[in-house]
Write a protein that binds this DNA or RNA. Structure first.
Lengths: 206, 206
DNA sequence: TCTGAAATGGTGGTGGACTCTCATTAGAGA
DNA sequence: TCTCTAATGAGAGTCCACCACCATTTCAGA
Protein backbone atom coordinates (compact mmCIF):
# COMPACT_ATOMS: atom_id res chain seq x y z
CA UNK A 1 0.00 0.00 0.00
CA UNK A 2 2.95 2.18 0.49
CA UNK A 3 4.89 3.35 -2.46
CA UNK A 4 6.76 6.26 -3.90
CA UNK A 5 10.40 6.51 -3.02
CA UNK A 6 10.10 10.21 -2.54
CA UNK A 7 13.06 10.06 -0.25
CA UNK A 8 16.24 12.02 -0.13
CA UNK A 9 19.49 10.14 0.25
CA UNK A 10 18.55 6.51 -0.03
CA UNK A 11 17.77 5.42 -3.52
CA UNK A 12 16.31 1.94 -3.50
CA UNK A 13 16.25 0.37 -6.88
CA UNK A 14 17.65 2.93 -9.26
CA UNK A 15 21.45 2.70 -9.49
CA UNK A 16 21.99 6.31 -8.53
CA UNK A 17 22.72 8.11 -11.73
CA UNK A 18 25.50 10.62 -11.56
CA UNK A 19 27.36 9.11 -8.64
CA UNK A 20 30.66 7.50 -8.10
CA UNK A 21 31.45 3.85 -7.92
CA UNK A 22 31.30 4.07 -4.16
CA UNK A 23 27.77 5.36 -4.22
CA UNK A 24 26.66 2.81 -6.71
CA UNK A 25 28.11 0.02 -4.67
CA UNK A 26 26.34 1.25 -1.59
CA UNK A 27 23.02 1.35 -3.31
CA UNK A 28 23.62 -2.07 -4.71
CA UNK A 29 24.54 -3.50 -1.33
CA UNK A 30 21.50 -1.98 0.25
CA UNK A 31 19.17 -3.28 -2.40
CA UNK A 32 20.82 -6.65 -2.22
CA UNK A 33 20.37 -6.97 1.50
CA UNK A 34 16.76 -5.89 1.39
CA UNK A 35 16.00 -8.22 -1.45
CA UNK A 36 17.37 -11.24 0.34
CA UNK A 37 15.61 -10.23 3.50
CA UNK A 38 12.26 -10.05 1.77
CA UNK A 39 12.82 -13.35 0.08
CA UNK A 40 13.64 -15.04 3.36
CA UNK A 41 10.74 -13.41 5.15
CA UNK A 42 8.39 -14.68 2.52
CA UNK A 43 9.87 -18.16 2.58
CA UNK A 44 10.31 -18.76 6.29
CA UNK A 45 8.30 -16.06 7.94
CA UNK A 46 9.43 -12.84 9.51
CA UNK A 47 10.00 -13.94 13.08
CA UNK A 48 11.71 -17.13 12.02
CA UNK A 49 14.28 -15.24 10.01
CA UNK A 50 17.29 -13.87 11.85
CA UNK A 51 19.56 -11.03 10.92
CA UNK A 52 22.39 -13.50 10.75
CA UNK A 53 20.60 -15.52 8.10
CA UNK A 54 19.94 -12.42 6.08
CA UNK A 55 23.56 -11.38 6.35
CA UNK A 56 24.71 -14.76 5.26
CA UNK A 57 22.35 -14.87 2.31
CA UNK A 58 23.38 -11.40 1.19
CA UNK A 59 27.03 -12.25 1.80
CA UNK A 60 27.71 -9.43 4.16
CA UNK A 61 28.35 -9.30 7.86
CA UNK A 62 25.54 -8.74 10.36
CA UNK A 63 27.14 -5.44 11.27
CA UNK A 64 26.68 -4.30 7.73
CA UNK A 65 23.02 -5.16 7.76
CA UNK A 66 22.56 -2.90 10.76
CA UNK A 67 24.60 -0.22 9.12
CA UNK A 68 22.10 -0.03 6.29
CA UNK A 69 18.93 -0.71 8.24
CA UNK A 70 18.57 0.57 11.76
CA UNK A 71 16.10 -2.14 12.76
CA UNK A 72 14.89 -5.42 11.45
CA UNK A 73 11.55 -3.86 10.69
CA UNK A 74 13.18 -1.28 8.50
CA UNK A 75 14.17 -4.05 6.16
CA UNK A 76 10.56 -4.17 5.12
CA UNK A 77 9.11 -0.82 5.97
CA UNK A 78 12.10 1.21 4.90
CA UNK A 79 11.74 4.91 4.45
CA UNK A 80 8.89 4.59 2.17
CA UNK A 81 6.16 7.00 2.79
CA UNK A 82 2.56 7.03 1.83
CA UNK A 83 -0.23 5.36 0.04
CA UNK A 84 0.78 5.56 -3.53
CA UNK A 85 -2.63 6.81 -4.39
CA UNK A 86 -2.22 9.78 -2.20
CA UNK A 87 0.80 10.97 -4.12
CA UNK A 88 -1.06 10.76 -7.38
CA UNK A 89 -4.07 12.45 -5.93
CA UNK A 90 -2.24 15.74 -5.89
CA UNK A 91 -2.08 15.84 -9.64
CA UNK A 92 -5.75 15.22 -10.32
CA UNK A 93 -8.03 17.84 -11.75
CA UNK A 94 -9.15 20.09 -8.89
CA UNK A 95 -12.62 20.19 -10.31
CA UNK A 96 -13.24 16.55 -9.53
CA UNK A 97 -14.99 15.53 -6.37
CA UNK A 98 -12.64 14.12 -3.72
CA UNK A 99 -13.69 10.54 -4.18
CA UNK A 100 -13.69 10.72 -7.93
CA UNK A 101 -10.26 12.25 -7.91
CA UNK A 102 -9.00 9.52 -5.67
CA UNK A 103 -10.49 6.78 -7.80
CA UNK A 104 -8.94 8.32 -10.83
CA UNK A 105 -5.60 8.57 -9.07
CA UNK A 106 -5.77 4.94 -8.13
CA UNK A 107 -6.54 3.88 -11.64
CA UNK A 108 -3.74 5.94 -13.11
CA UNK A 109 -1.16 4.99 -10.54
CA UNK A 110 -1.69 1.28 -10.60
CA UNK A 111 -1.78 1.29 -14.36
CA UNK A 112 1.50 3.13 -14.57
CA UNK A 113 3.60 0.88 -12.40
CA UNK A 114 5.59 -1.72 -14.32
CA UNK A 115 4.18 -5.07 -13.45
CA UNK A 116 7.42 -6.53 -12.11
CA UNK A 117 7.84 -3.69 -9.70
CA UNK A 118 4.18 -3.85 -8.86
CA UNK A 119 4.50 -7.48 -7.95
CA UNK A 120 7.50 -6.80 -5.75
CA UNK A 121 5.71 -4.00 -4.04
CA UNK A 122 2.69 -6.20 -3.65
CA UNK A 123 4.71 -8.85 -1.87
CA UNK A 124 6.15 -6.26 0.43
CA UNK A 125 2.78 -4.81 1.25
CA UNK A 126 1.47 -8.27 1.81
CA UNK A 127 4.11 -8.83 4.43
CA UNK A 128 3.28 -5.58 6.13
CA UNK A 129 -0.38 -6.36 6.36
CA UNK A 130 0.27 -9.91 7.40
CA UNK A 131 2.88 -9.54 10.12
CA UNK A 132 1.52 -7.56 13.05
CA UNK A 133 4.94 -6.35 14.00
CA UNK A 134 5.44 -4.82 10.60
CA UNK A 135 2.02 -3.37 10.51
CA UNK A 136 2.89 -1.69 13.76
CA UNK A 137 6.12 -0.37 12.39
CA UNK A 138 4.35 1.19 9.47
CA UNK A 139 1.56 2.63 11.56
CA UNK A 140 3.33 5.94 11.44
CA UNK A 141 3.29 5.88 7.66
CA UNK A 142 -0.31 4.90 7.62
CA UNK A 143 -1.50 7.62 9.93
CA UNK A 144 0.52 10.21 8.12
CA UNK A 145 -1.11 9.09 4.91
CA UNK A 146 -4.45 9.53 6.55
CA UNK A 147 -3.47 13.03 7.49
CA UNK A 148 -2.30 13.85 4.01
CA UNK A 149 -5.50 12.44 2.62
CA UNK A 150 -7.48 14.60 4.98
CA UNK A 151 -5.51 17.64 3.99
CA UNK A 152 -5.99 17.08 0.29
CA UNK A 153 -9.68 16.43 0.68
CA UNK A 154 -9.99 19.56 2.73
CA UNK A 155 -8.41 21.60 -0.05
CA UNK A 156 -10.61 20.06 -2.66
CA UNK A 157 -13.72 20.68 -0.60
CA UNK A 158 -12.73 24.16 0.39
CA UNK A 159 -13.08 23.35 4.07
CA UNK A 160 -10.79 23.10 7.03
CA UNK A 161 -9.24 19.70 7.75
CA UNK A 162 -11.02 19.71 11.08
CA UNK A 163 -14.41 20.03 9.49
CA UNK A 164 -16.55 17.02 10.15
CA UNK A 165 -17.46 16.54 6.54
CA UNK A 166 -13.81 16.21 5.70
CA UNK A 167 -12.94 13.99 8.61
CA UNK A 168 -15.87 11.71 8.00
CA UNK A 169 -15.02 11.33 4.37
CA UNK A 170 -11.33 10.71 4.76
CA UNK A 171 -11.95 8.35 7.62
CA UNK A 172 -14.41 6.42 5.53
CA UNK A 173 -12.05 6.24 2.61
CA UNK A 174 -9.29 5.06 4.84
CA UNK A 175 -11.49 2.36 6.33
CA UNK A 176 -12.46 1.06 2.94
CA UNK A 177 -8.85 0.88 1.93
CA UNK A 178 -8.00 -0.91 5.11
CA UNK A 179 -10.75 -3.41 4.60
CA UNK A 180 -9.63 -3.99 1.06
CA UNK A 181 -6.09 -4.58 2.17
CA UNK A 182 -7.34 -7.22 4.56
CA UNK A 183 -9.31 -8.92 1.83
CA UNK A 184 -6.28 -8.75 -0.33
CA UNK A 185 -4.07 -10.35 2.28
CA UNK A 186 -6.40 -13.31 2.22
CA UNK A 187 -6.53 -13.44 -1.54
CA UNK A 188 -3.37 -12.05 -3.16
CA UNK A 189 -4.87 -12.45 -6.59
CA UNK A 190 -7.62 -10.00 -5.89
CA UNK A 191 -7.94 -7.19 -8.41
CA UNK A 192 -6.88 -4.48 -6.04
CA UNK A 193 -7.59 -1.56 -8.31
CA UNK A 194 -11.02 -2.77 -9.33
CA UNK A 195 -12.03 -3.65 -5.83
CA UNK A 196 -11.01 -0.28 -4.46
CA UNK A 197 -12.74 1.52 -7.24
CA UNK A 198 -16.05 -0.19 -6.84
CA UNK A 199 -16.05 0.08 -3.07
CA UNK A 200 -15.12 3.74 -3.09
CA UNK A 201 -17.87 4.38 -5.55
CA UNK A 202 -20.31 3.83 -2.72
CA UNK A 203 -19.07 6.98 -1.08
CA UNK A 204 -19.58 9.02 -4.17
CA UNK A 205 -23.03 10.33 -3.70
CA UNK A 206 -22.45 14.03 -3.38
CA UNK B 1 5.53 -11.89 18.02
CA UNK B 2 2.49 -13.37 16.53
CA UNK B 3 -1.01 -12.59 17.59
CA UNK B 4 -2.19 -13.80 20.94
CA UNK B 5 -3.97 -17.15 20.93
CA UNK B 6 -7.17 -15.68 22.24
CA UNK B 7 -7.24 -16.76 25.83
CA UNK B 8 -9.94 -18.91 27.19
CA UNK B 9 -10.30 -19.43 30.91
CA UNK B 10 -9.06 -16.13 32.28
CA UNK B 11 -11.73 -13.97 33.80
CA UNK B 12 -10.67 -10.34 33.69
CA UNK B 13 -12.09 -8.02 36.25
CA UNK B 14 -15.08 -9.70 37.82
CA UNK B 15 -14.09 -11.39 41.10
CA UNK B 16 -15.56 -14.71 40.06
CA UNK B 17 -18.70 -15.00 42.11
CA UNK B 18 -19.39 -18.43 43.51
CA UNK B 19 -15.80 -19.53 43.68
CA UNK B 20 -13.42 -20.55 46.36
CA UNK B 21 -10.84 -18.48 48.09
CA UNK B 22 -8.27 -19.80 45.72
CA UNK B 23 -10.16 -18.58 42.70
CA UNK B 24 -10.77 -15.23 44.24
CA UNK B 25 -7.14 -14.83 45.09
CA UNK B 26 -6.15 -15.69 41.58
CA UNK B 27 -8.46 -13.13 40.10
CA UNK B 28 -7.19 -10.59 42.57
CA UNK B 29 -3.57 -11.31 41.77
CA UNK B 30 -4.24 -11.09 38.09
CA UNK B 31 -6.05 -7.82 38.39
CA UNK B 32 -3.36 -6.51 40.66
CA UNK B 33 -0.57 -7.32 38.27
CA UNK B 34 -2.38 -5.82 35.32
CA UNK B 35 -3.23 -2.71 37.24
CA UNK B 36 0.35 -2.06 38.24
CA UNK B 37 1.52 -2.81 34.75
CA UNK B 38 -0.83 -0.27 33.25
CA UNK B 39 0.16 2.30 35.80
CA UNK B 40 3.83 1.84 35.05
CA UNK B 41 3.27 1.84 31.31
CA UNK B 42 1.45 5.10 31.58
CA UNK B 43 4.09 6.62 33.82
CA UNK B 44 7.30 5.45 32.17
CA UNK B 45 6.20 4.20 28.81
CA UNK B 46 5.69 0.69 27.59
CA UNK B 47 9.13 -0.16 26.33
CA UNK B 48 10.85 1.43 29.26
CA UNK B 49 8.97 -0.76 31.69
CA UNK B 50 10.34 -4.23 32.32
CA UNK B 51 8.56 -7.29 33.57
CA UNK B 52 10.78 -7.21 36.59
CA UNK B 53 9.59 -3.76 37.51
CA UNK B 54 6.01 -4.82 37.15
CA UNK B 55 6.60 -7.88 39.27
CA UNK B 56 8.25 -5.82 41.93
CA UNK B 57 5.48 -3.25 41.96
CA UNK B 58 2.82 -5.92 42.18
CA UNK B 59 4.84 -7.77 44.79
CA UNK B 60 5.01 -11.02 42.92
CA UNK B 61 7.82 -12.79 41.16
CA UNK B 62 8.49 -12.34 37.45
CA UNK B 63 7.58 -15.98 36.97
CA UNK B 64 4.15 -15.26 38.32
CA UNK B 65 3.63 -12.43 35.90
CA UNK B 66 4.28 -14.78 33.03
CA UNK B 67 2.05 -17.37 34.56
CA UNK B 68 -0.87 -14.98 34.34
CA UNK B 69 0.01 -13.25 31.10
CA UNK B 70 1.61 -15.16 28.29
CA UNK B 71 3.33 -12.12 26.85
CA UNK B 72 4.11 -8.60 27.90
CA UNK B 73 1.61 -7.33 25.39
CA UNK B 74 -1.13 -9.36 26.96
CA UNK B 75 -0.82 -7.19 30.02
CA UNK B 76 -2.55 -4.52 28.05
CA UNK B 77 -4.43 -6.26 25.33
CA UNK B 78 -5.62 -9.29 27.29
CA UNK B 79 -8.45 -11.25 25.77
CA UNK B 80 -10.68 -8.35 26.15
CA UNK B 81 -13.19 -7.89 23.44
CA UNK B 82 -12.43 -4.75 21.60
CA UNK B 83 -14.68 -1.97 20.61
CA UNK B 84 -17.41 -2.18 23.13
CA UNK B 85 -19.92 -0.71 20.75
CA UNK B 86 -19.98 -3.78 18.62
CA UNK B 87 -21.37 -5.90 21.40
CA UNK B 88 -24.18 -3.51 22.08
CA UNK B 89 -25.10 -3.32 18.44
CA UNK B 90 -26.57 -6.78 18.59
CA UNK B 91 -29.34 -5.69 20.90
CA UNK B 92 -30.56 -2.75 18.85
CA UNK B 93 -33.93 -2.71 17.15
CA UNK B 94 -33.59 -4.59 13.85
CA UNK B 95 -35.74 -2.03 12.15
CA UNK B 96 -33.13 0.66 12.49
CA UNK B 97 -30.72 1.39 9.68
CA UNK B 98 -27.22 0.03 10.30
CA UNK B 99 -25.65 3.36 11.03
CA UNK B 100 -28.51 4.53 13.21
CA UNK B 101 -28.39 1.32 15.14
CA UNK B 102 -24.69 1.71 15.68
CA UNK B 103 -25.00 5.29 16.79
CA UNK B 104 -27.70 4.28 19.20
CA UNK B 105 -25.56 1.45 20.46
CA UNK B 106 -22.69 3.80 21.06
CA UNK B 107 -24.84 6.24 22.94
CA UNK B 108 -26.32 3.55 25.14
CA UNK B 109 -23.09 1.76 25.81
CA UNK B 110 -21.03 4.74 26.73
CA UNK B 111 -23.80 6.05 28.92
CA UNK B 112 -24.06 2.79 30.77
CA UNK B 113 -20.44 2.30 31.68
CA UNK B 114 -19.56 3.51 35.16
CA UNK B 115 -17.26 6.45 34.78
CA UNK B 116 -14.43 4.92 36.75
CA UNK B 117 -14.36 1.88 34.56
CA UNK B 118 -14.76 4.04 31.51
CA UNK B 119 -11.72 6.02 32.48
CA UNK B 120 -9.73 2.85 32.99
CA UNK B 121 -10.78 1.57 29.63
CA UNK B 122 -9.94 4.88 28.12
CA UNK B 123 -6.42 4.75 29.49
CA UNK B 124 -6.00 1.26 28.19
CA UNK B 125 -7.23 2.14 24.74
CA UNK B 126 -5.01 5.15 24.78
CA UNK B 127 -2.02 2.93 25.34
CA UNK B 128 -3.04 0.60 22.58
CA UNK B 129 -3.44 3.33 20.04
CA UNK B 130 -0.29 5.03 21.17
CA UNK B 131 2.21 2.18 21.36
CA UNK B 132 2.72 0.56 17.97
CA UNK B 133 3.66 -2.73 19.53
CA UNK B 134 0.36 -2.88 21.31
CA UNK B 135 -1.59 -1.78 18.34
CA UNK B 136 -0.02 -4.67 16.51
CA UNK B 137 -0.92 -7.09 19.24
CA UNK B 138 -4.53 -6.01 19.16
CA UNK B 139 -4.72 -6.06 15.41
CA UNK B 140 -6.40 -9.43 15.66
CA UNK B 141 -9.06 -8.00 17.90
CA UNK B 142 -9.54 -5.05 15.64
CA UNK B 143 -9.95 -7.05 12.49
CA UNK B 144 -12.31 -9.43 14.17
CA UNK B 145 -14.40 -6.46 15.24
CA UNK B 146 -14.48 -5.34 11.69
CA UNK B 147 -15.69 -8.75 10.67
CA UNK B 148 -18.36 -8.81 13.31
CA UNK B 149 -19.44 -5.37 12.30
CA UNK B 150 -19.66 -6.50 8.71
CA UNK B 151 -21.70 -9.52 9.68
CA UNK B 152 -24.16 -7.53 11.73
CA UNK B 153 -24.57 -4.94 9.04
CA UNK B 154 -25.13 -7.67 6.51
CA UNK B 155 -27.93 -9.13 8.60
CA UNK B 156 -29.53 -5.77 9.08
CA UNK B 157 -29.36 -4.98 5.39
CA UNK B 158 -30.49 -8.41 4.33
CA UNK B 159 -27.42 -8.87 2.16
CA UNK B 160 -24.45 -11.16 2.15
CA UNK B 161 -21.35 -9.98 4.03
CA UNK B 162 -19.47 -10.04 0.75
CA UNK B 163 -21.82 -7.60 -0.87
CA UNK B 164 -20.09 -4.40 -1.77
CA UNK B 165 -22.70 -2.24 -0.13
CA UNK B 166 -22.04 -3.98 3.12
CA UNK B 167 -18.30 -3.97 2.81
CA UNK B 168 -18.18 -0.33 1.82
CA UNK B 169 -20.34 0.67 4.72
CA UNK B 170 -18.59 -1.31 7.40
CA UNK B 171 -15.23 -0.26 6.07
CA UNK B 172 -16.26 3.34 6.18
CA UNK B 173 -17.59 3.03 9.70
CA UNK B 174 -14.43 1.37 10.80
CA UNK B 175 -12.32 4.09 9.26
CA UNK B 176 -14.25 6.79 11.01
CA UNK B 177 -13.82 5.02 14.29
CA UNK B 178 -10.15 4.62 13.66
CA UNK B 179 -9.76 8.26 12.82
CA UNK B 180 -11.64 9.22 15.93
CA UNK B 181 -9.44 7.03 18.06
CA UNK B 182 -6.43 8.83 16.66
CA UNK B 183 -7.92 12.21 17.42
CA UNK B 184 -8.73 10.97 20.83
CA UNK B 185 -5.20 9.82 21.45
CA UNK B 186 -4.06 13.36 20.82
CA UNK B 187 -6.76 14.87 22.99
CA UNK B 188 -7.88 12.49 25.74
CA UNK B 189 -10.54 14.93 26.84
CA UNK B 190 -12.37 14.66 23.56
CA UNK B 191 -16.03 13.79 23.86
CA UNK B 192 -15.69 10.40 22.29
CA UNK B 193 -19.37 9.58 22.10
CA UNK B 194 -20.37 12.89 20.65
CA UNK B 195 -17.58 12.92 18.13
CA UNK B 196 -18.37 9.45 16.91
CA UNK B 197 -22.03 10.20 16.67
CA UNK B 198 -21.65 13.31 14.61
CA UNK B 199 -19.07 11.80 12.28
CA UNK B 200 -21.07 8.67 11.71
CA UNK B 201 -24.09 10.78 10.95
CA UNK B 202 -22.38 11.71 7.70
CA UNK B 203 -22.80 8.14 6.53
CA UNK B 204 -26.46 8.10 7.31
CA UNK B 205 -27.96 9.16 4.08
CA UNK B 206 -29.79 6.07 2.97
C1' DT C 1 -5.06 -32.45 61.47
C1' DC C 2 -3.27 -34.75 57.58
C1' DT C 3 -2.57 -35.27 52.46
C1' DG C 4 -2.55 -34.09 47.73
C1' DA C 5 -2.82 -30.37 44.56
C1' DA C 6 -2.24 -25.90 43.10
C1' DA C 7 0.16 -21.49 43.28
C1' DT C 8 4.42 -19.19 43.91
C1' DG C 9 9.36 -17.96 44.11
C1' DG C 10 13.91 -18.39 42.67
C1' DT C 11 17.46 -19.54 39.82
C1' DG C 12 19.68 -20.39 35.69
C1' DG C 13 19.47 -20.31 30.85
C1' DT C 14 18.46 -19.17 25.83
C1' DG C 15 17.76 -16.59 21.77
C1' DG C 16 18.13 -12.76 19.16
C1' DA C 17 18.07 -7.82 18.25
C1' DC C 18 21.09 -4.23 18.69
C1' DT C 19 25.74 -1.65 20.22
C1' DC C 20 30.71 -0.62 20.37
C1' DT C 21 35.28 -0.95 19.16
C1' DC C 22 38.98 -1.78 16.35
C1' DA C 23 41.51 -3.69 12.72
C1' DT C 24 41.26 -4.34 7.61
C1' DT C 25 40.01 -3.35 3.03
C1' DA C 26 38.59 -0.65 -0.97
C1' DG C 27 37.74 3.53 -3.35
C1' DA C 28 38.82 8.79 -4.21
C1' DG C 29 41.85 12.18 -5.37
C1' DA C 30 46.43 13.93 -5.96
C1' DT D 1 51.79 5.38 -6.77
C1' DC D 2 50.69 7.24 -2.18
C1' DT D 3 47.58 8.98 1.17
C1' DC D 4 43.13 9.84 3.23
C1' DT D 5 38.68 8.53 4.16
C1' DA D 6 34.79 5.72 3.95
C1' DA D 7 33.01 0.96 4.09
C1' DT D 8 33.36 -3.55 5.96
C1' DG D 9 34.24 -7.51 9.03
C1' DA D 10 34.87 -9.64 13.37
C1' DG D 11 34.28 -10.15 18.10
C1' DA D 12 32.76 -9.31 22.45
C1' DG D 13 29.08 -7.49 25.07
C1' DT D 14 24.27 -5.76 26.69
C1' DC D 15 19.55 -6.13 27.42
C1' DC D 16 15.32 -8.23 28.11
C1' DA D 17 11.45 -11.16 27.00
C1' DC D 18 10.51 -15.66 27.83
C1' DC D 19 11.30 -20.74 29.33
C1' DA D 20 12.30 -24.84 32.38
C1' DC D 21 13.09 -26.89 36.58
C1' DC D 22 12.59 -27.48 41.39
C1' DA D 23 11.80 -26.22 46.13
C1' DT D 24 8.43 -24.02 49.06
C1' DT D 25 4.23 -22.26 50.54
C1' DT D 26 -0.84 -22.06 50.59
C1' DC D 27 -5.34 -23.78 50.05
C1' DA D 28 -8.97 -27.75 49.61
C1' DG D 29 -11.17 -31.73 51.14
C1' DA D 30 -11.46 -35.58 54.24
Amino acid sequence: MTVAPSNSSEVPSSPARGSSLRERKKAKTRANIQQHALRLFRAQGYDATTIEQIAEAAEVSPSTVFRYFATKEDLVVADDTDLMFVAALRTQDPALSPVRALRQAIRVTIGAVPSAEFRARRDRDFLIVTVPELWAASLGNVTSSLQILTTLFAERMGLSPEHHSVRALSGAVFGIMFDTMLQWSKDPDLDLAGELDSLLAHLDQD
